[in-house]
């Protein structure tokens, strides 16, 4: 329990840190993408708070709080994916945007497993969102060749791997919970490394912009 609590608190600290930085960026330059990143990391942070709280709750309540935490994090991943989706939609010709929507039904395929619990449904949604986001981030890396993009793309890929490992607990309940949580925290750790080079000093809002 101590390791799980520590891992969740580390995850919380990292996501609060990135969220705070994204909010400072939104407040300074007013970019919608930075607003979406802020919402995403607030949601992910809230998820970590719930996951940590679930460790102290009774057996029945613990499952519900755990599922709520995972759902909050899935919402966070959705907002990151949404930013990429909006960016990519501009690269499609308007006539081909409708065609791209045809791929959506394929993403629901992994959810149709009889007897699957809500937790595992949420994990599979998170997995798909994270795979999409990490592929988009890696595609950006291929264009820009920036090491920070590579680190964040790898972090998102690690988060996706963590979700699929945790999802596999559907078959062997509880067997992979701790490795999955540690992989998740490692994924967030990879995402925070590039920020050491971005200059994390105090960011002041430029009035009137």
């Amino acid at each position: 329990m101590e390791i799980e609590l520590a891992a969740n608190l580390v995850g919380l600290a990292i996501s609060v840190f990135i969220g705070r930085f994204a909010y400072a960026g939104y407040a300074a330059v007013g970019s919608p993408n930075l607003l979406r990143l802020t919402i995403a990391f607030i949601s992910i942070s809230a998820g970590f708070v719930m996951l940590a709280s679930a460790l102290f709750a009774g057996p029945g309540l613990s499952v519900a709080i755990n599922t709520a935490g995972l759902t909050a994090q899935a919402v966070g991943y959705f907002f990151i994916a949404m930013s990429h989706g909006l960016k990519s939609s501009f690269d499609f010709l308007p006539s081909k945007r409708g065609t791209a929507l045809l791929f959506i039904p394929f993403t629901t395929a992994p959810f149709i497993i009889p007897g699957n619990s809500i937790e595992h449904l949420v994990r599979s949604i998170s997995f798909i969102l994270l795979v999409y986001v990490s592929i988009e981030t890696m595609a950006s890396y291929m264009q820009t060749r920036k090491s920070s993009t590579l680190m964040i793309g790898s972090g998102l890929g690690t988060l996706a791997a963590a979700e699929i490992v945790a999802w596999y607990g559907f078959i062997f309940p509880g067997a992979f919970a701790l490795p999955a949580l540690l992989a998740k925290v490692a994924g967030f750790g990879l995402m925070v490394v590039p920020f050491s080079r971005l200059g994390l000093g105090r960011v002041e809002k430029v009035d009137g912009v």
């Binding site: 300074a28 930075l34 990429h84 960016k87 920036k146 993009t149 971005l198 430029v206 009035d207």
Partner: peptide
Amino acid sequence: EKGMEFLKTYRQFKGFAEGFGLRV
């Protein structure tokens, strides 16, 4: 001077957003 300050902040957050493969 205010414009210079804005440009500096913009570049900082441009790097942040590009890390996620996004545009500011």
